[in-house]
Design a protein around this nucleic acid. Sequence first.
DNA 1: TCCCACTTAGC
DNA 2: CTAAGTGGG
Length: 475
Amino acid sequence: MQTFVIHWFRRDLRLTDNTALLAAAATGHSVLPVFILDEAIYKGRFASGSRLAFMLKALRSLDEQLKVYGSRLLVKLGEPGGILHQLVAEAGASAVYANADYTPYAHRRDHTIKSGLGVPLHLFDDVALLPPGAVLKGDGKPFVVFTPFKKAWLNIPKGPVQSAPALGAFVKLDSLPMVDGWGTVPSPQELGFAPTVDLPEASEVEATRRLDEFINGRAAAYATGRNVLAAERQDDTRPESSFLSPYLRFGMLSPRQAYQAARAAYPAANSTHARESLETWVSELVWRDFYMHILHFFPQVLKSSFRPEYDRVEWRQFPAEFQRWKEGMTGYPVVDAAMRQLRAMGWMPNRARMIVASFLTKDLLIDWREGERHFMQWLIDGDPAANNGGWQWSAGTGTDAQPYFRIFNPVSQGENFDPDGRYVRRWVPELAQVPDKFIHQPWAMPAPPANYPPPMVNHGEARTRTLSAFKAVKG
DNA sequence: TCCCACTTAGC
DNA sequence: CTAAGTGGG
């Protein structure tokens, strides 16, 4: 008689280099591949139509991949504990395998399921290169500053990339006739969303292709290219940055694959800039681990500032101003371009994220948590740990010792990182005819475009206002 | 992963 | 007048 184990896919939507999946396959039992659409994914504060649509696309791809194995993805809608319990009974499964996630919600969910499942829930570290707890200070406490964390991180060996399970690993469709839900991935509409973003391909094959293309091409110029806001071509949504965050978010690519590809490319990198570029890119993977580690050890950051004194900042509550920021109608071209790109693509390059985050928190003096939520509602790569870390970094309330006076000038940021205005013209068509000289400050033109708003705040005055608001609460 | 005011050197 | 460098928020 055939016996089964369940692999519960969560944010590891791939077959290659999947730690828990390989462990499940190594039991010698047939693996039943399951994804559960938990209400928590599509309801609640951080729910996102664009990210949901991207994820559903990835689930369809995963289902297609599993057909090659003579199987399908079993998709269930509902509460994970109850569903797993029922599946274990129906299939006679002897264990459930999954890769651990480190958000407070995931910890709670898995802990509850573990105690009530009746069979073991085996959790594996896979989502981070080095999981929370693997990088600690000499005294056993967690790092709270990035640079020493990174230094320690670099000295710890990382695992190799593993292959996909053998062809016979998965349950054959006809062996579990009582179970239904094979390959029935719902549409975003069925879950109450009508997403409008222009989504990229979402599959393991596409993720690997993008990684190869990046490592063999733009990676060599990443150290500077990552800051270039505009895509190479006007009609091209492919940016200078790697554009791998959406794939890492849902595990169509593993961080090990990303890291080992960079390491493998390093010996052939034939210039200082090329080597620095690969190091910078690896550094981004370290940031990813760092913020997972911060969220694991300090889950309160989702509610409060990492430095509690900054929760006394008197954030301004001006919904109409927040609305203008969200719509990309602030009057600062680079800010507006970025905010409109977010709504069109569900994605922005990191430089753009920093610019708009600085503008919301420092120029408008609106609470970083408002911005954090808006990003989570739109970003296809939106991840609670990284997004929270990024926002607290920008607001100056976070882990790094950088002072609160990190205030970006939206004009000089535009001039530095979109010197020819291509990014602004791509996303703010009202400014298409503005000459380069004025593209980042159209209000200085003799006759500014009538259909584009004047700047909603004076940057110099806003800067002063923010410096005093922060000074007032500084310990 | 910054900005700004200020200084100095050079024309 | 600009460029380059510096100190400090």
